[in-house]
Design a protein around this nucleic acid. Structure first.
Lengths: 343, 343
DNA sequence: AACTCCTACGTCAACGTTGACGTAACCGGC
DNA sequence: GCCGGTTACGTCAACGTTGACGTAGGAGTT
């Protein structure tokens, strides 16, 4: 036994020869179709077992009328982000229950990579694509979609028509977070956000503005920091906020890595017990920090399930109008978001 | 444009008709094989472009001599564990550089699921399988391997022959961690481990024993707690340790979720500044806890790269003897592991 | 001028499977 | 004993592609 394994895989032809039936009868037995007698069925089953026969799905899907590969592609940006990982897992889980496997590919927010990956998936004739990452340009996605590939976008709506998407209550939950901080007496609430090109960032910022307005607070531009991609950048930005003459007394951090960066700075400056923080997106160990971090938690399994349901339905031929599903997020109070403003 | 997309995909035949050449010539041009003139090549390219032709890799691999699907399967246990997520990412990354995509499947430590997944992968004729999760039974893996499928195990060696694996320095690094704690004056060092059925758990426990012996300490069975699967169980076990008459002054937690559980209890009992902790496996935010957690960090990208290299080499026909690659882990001092024993 | 060799194509069959369709045997009914 | 229908098979071609092999025409050699 060596790693290369030069043994030829047994085919239906081999099974047919052993069971002394035609290859078509083998096909019927393997696929559980009617038209095979009890005794023949048993003979074929025994022959298949003894040869270790395994159906070849690629040959089958090449020939079959429906052309299904029972495989979908999932594009994500960065698996090291627990949000992406949990989402992939949820989609994979639901897909597999329908006998569908997942071809996974990370795009690292690279436009060229995304295009190449879509070509690779298309060459393998995936039945559909779930996109959990669609940086600025969606033209590669649009092109693929227009070829007829079923597609579902997660976490941002398509810039082109006829395509489903699943998002969370970015704006509403952000507004609620800001209102909560305002209710605790905070009047200088900073906004720390990820790259402005991201649709979610824009929505969360809009929610922030709506929250301020609704609470009767005026926007201080100096307290708005965006394009914070990654923990390090978020730290720098947070530090700058507290070097202001009138620093914020509360932070609304609109992405989990930003939240982490902000917490680092607060702790380093020993401000973590005085400055309130509410973060968007939960993250592991948020409850173990000091103070535990209050967050807006997205229903990641719910989003994944919805995305899987949508893509599987489309693959099954559902031609109803495109859907924009919104899965509600919830506020999880843990301490950092309950720090009141000093009178 | 609707989601079903009933347009037929253009084939080489269509391209050939438009370019007024034979289908074989199209094949040559698409695959960059010699034997096509400059002018004809251009005509074929133009025709393919204008029809939006995409090669069908499944048909191609069915016919080609090498039978490659340019796809590998990756089985993992739980993507919500950052270790699995990072590993999948590393493998996917390296595979894609070789034009190979990854069919991902989570097994959730379920034996039946693992078997089913292997059948699914086999039906899709993957070129090889990387297994990042192999609970107790490896018979399904062995069966698949004996069919000739190239295979690489990660994080535990195969119980059968002829198969590569990649692991880290479980025993050596565990011994080093215990020795470090002993050097700080700790004499009551507890061991908190994951399920004993896991090979890594056994290795780490062996390293713990070796460390104790080498430091001249005697094993106290009461300080050994195993089969702690998940944060909650780890918390209970840790709490029990500190209800002992002679509680430990240092903990060696042999898995990341166990470490988290232990830290929770230490904090709750206000012991986190007095009891030393070294954990096996790094985890996000370990540096943000109070105190920051000293860990043995596995070189996850290195492990993933090695696994990808091995499987790709085997697929390319490497028939050298099976390899057990060991990727070194390193100790990352952050504070919790540097707490000295009270004299 | 006949020869070999090469280049640039084309033809054909096959990969493993299934849809369309054929057919022999049997059943029940009269 | 013949009809119509059903059951249990089999035959054939095709899915999109490529390996093996064939061939026409031109260039170079003797």
């Amino acid at each position: 036994m060596d790693q290369a394994g030069e043994r030829r895989e047994p085919t239906m032809r081999d099974v047919a020869a052993l069971a002394k039936v035609s290859i078509k009868t083998v096909s019927r037995v393997i696929n559980g179709l009617p038209g095979a007698g009890t005794e023949v069925t048993e003979r074929v089953r025994a022959a298949a077992r003894s040869l270790g026969y395994r159906p070849n799905l690629t040959a089958s899907s090449l020939r079959r009328a429906d052309r299904r590969s029972a495989t979908i592609g999932v594009l994500f940006e960065d698996l090291s982000n627990p949000f992406d990982a949990a989402l992939l897992r949820a989609v994979e889980d639901h897909a597999r229950r329908s006998g569908v496997l997942v071809l996974a590919g990370s795009t690292e927010d690279d436009h060229t990579l995304q295009r190449e990956l879509l070509v690779s998936l298309s060459a393998r004739r995936v039945d559909g694509v779930v996109v959990m990452a669609a940086g600025g340009h969606q033209d590669a996605l649009q092109h693929e979609r227009e070829r007829g590939t079923p597609m579902v976008l997660v976490d941002r709506p398509p810039t082109f028509g006829g395509t489903d998407c699943v998002t969370t209550t970015n704006r509403d939950s952000s507004r609620a977070a800001v209102l909560k901080l305002a209710a605790l007496g905070h009047r200088d609430i900073a906004f720390l956000g990820d790259r402005r090109t991201l649709w979610t960032s824009q929505e969360r910022y809009t929610g922030y503005l709506e929250g301020l307005a609704q609470a009767g607070l005026t926007l201080r531009e100096a307290l708005v920091r965006t394009d914070l991609h990654g923990v390090a950048v978020a730290e720098t930005a947070t530090a700058a906020l507290f070097d202001l003459d009138r620093p914020p007394t509360a932070l609304f951090t609109a992405q989990n890595l930003v939240t982490v960066g902000a917490m680092r700075v607060l702790r380093a400056r020993d401000l973590h017990r005085r400055v309130a923080v509410i973060g968007f997106d939960d993250f592991p160990l948020a409850d173990l920090l000091d103070p535990a971090v209050t967050v807006v938690r997205q229903d990641v399994p719910g989003i994944g399930r919805k995305a899987a349901e949508l893509i599987l339905a489309r693959i099954d031929g559902d031609t109803s109008p495109p859907v924009h599903a919104v899965v509600p997020a919830s506020l999880v109070p843990r301490g950092s978001g309950e720090i009141a403003a000093l009178s």
